[in-house]
Design a protein around this nucleic acid. Structure first.
Lengths: 212, 212
DNA sequence: AAGTAAATGATAAATATTTCTCTTTTCTTT
DNA sequence: AAAGAAAAGAGAAATATTTATCATTTACTT
């Protein structure tokens, strides 16, 4: 069950489906499902079996002809593909409700994000303890990142603070930023910025409701 | 500046970009920007000008040759396209941190979602007042939906409760469900289900970090 | 142990999406 | 008022993605 070696050509469309594969495979492993055919597996995900097989073929040969896919093995492979086995040290900035929700989200740690620092600018929030971590004053953020060699910054501040926080994170040397503020963030190109826009899902829902 | 009439053919790829257009246009209106060319506008969004023009052409002619797009008008049109002008009565089930974060999210109401009821099963949370609404016992959910003719249900419960809540929502007659639980939700096909998987963004970030 | 059915992986065909080029319109300047 | 520049819109070409078909391998049954 080898991961294909050499430089992989992974279409953007395939890349976008990888998190879904991860989710479903994780759930199936938890359920204790041992094997599934591409047809059964793809059926649960709402895609075609051709597409699933084609997608997996970008990375290697994970199935057995006449038998199907061993779920545990495929899950393992998917973890490797996504780089989930690595651990990333992270800080979270903006300990409001969304920040707290993310800190408590178990899938967070499972995916390899280890939050080692929480920061906020609100005096009422600084000093609070959440999940064993004390919320620090945002003024200490820059120093903390350098000292602890933090790799990822999560921004859950209000929109207007987001860019300022991003600048501190970038100056501190993080490799990636996961931004939840609606504001688009700019950073030098060697820093990977991933924007998550929670409100977008609602618009998709409305559009489909209107179509009906 | 007419919206094209008759049955529109809107490619899925275009549909997925509409929320982004909405976000950027809203921000530009707030900034007070009056007009932009397709090149300037698309540049900010990180897409090509051809694509922007092609996308808009699915819905009508919104620009002026030799001049560009009037931002306010284009924003208006986008609101119409997305059906954001309509108001939807909604309930939110699961008043944890994520639920609270969404309730306080201003973009929520701006997009047309009017939350009129909050529900939870936790005795410690029931009775709390948030944004002028009192959290009700989840046992009252079914009746409430029917009485108030609720159209949309937002699920922010833990995974294992999600399907049960979805069933109550469906039985009550909602038209759409916005689900944040990692669990995939099943409902009869006439109900639109939109799943938002917050953790997916993190995997995208990791994948890109690994690529570097 | 041999034959049959099941299911992958690969290739090819069909579709969908994006980009490019060109024409036409509109604004702006002289 | 006329000429030139700017920029949308439309159609065509190029690219990417998805689906269908088929050959081959593997497992299971008799």
């Amino acid at each position: 069950m080898p991961l294909r070696s050499g430089p992989l050509i992974v279409p953007a469309a395939v890349m976008k489906r990888l998190p879904m594969y991860y989710r479903y495979l994780h759930a199936l492993v938890e359920e204790g499902v041992e094997r599934l055919s591409s047809q059964e597996l793809s059926g649960r995900m709402g895609i075609s079996s051709s597409q699933l097989r084609q997608d997996l073929n970008c990375f290697g040969e994970f199935g057995q002809q006449g038998y199907g896919y061993r779920i545990a093995d495929l899950y393992q492979a998917m973890c490797q593909i996504l780089g989930v086995e690595k651990r990333y040290k992270a800080v979270l900035v903006g300990v409001g409700n969304l920040g707290k929700a993310l800190i408590n989200y178990e899938g967070f740690r499972r995916r390899g994000l280890v939050v080692i620092g929480l920061f906020d600018s609100d005096e009422n929030i600084i000093g609070q303890e959440i999940n064993g971590l004390t919320v620090n004053n945002i003024r200490k953020l820059g120093e903390f990142i350098k000292q602890e060699q933090v790799e990822v910054g999560v921004i859950t501040t209000p929109a207007k603070a987001a860019q300022e926080v991003a600048d501190i994170l970038a100056a501190g040397g993080v490799k990636g930023i996961w931004n939840f503020a609606p504001q688009p963030i700019t950073a030098s190109p060697e820093i990977i910025v991933e924007n998550t826009h929670i409100g977008d899902g609602l618009l998709n829902l409305f559009y489909k409701l209107k179509e009906k």
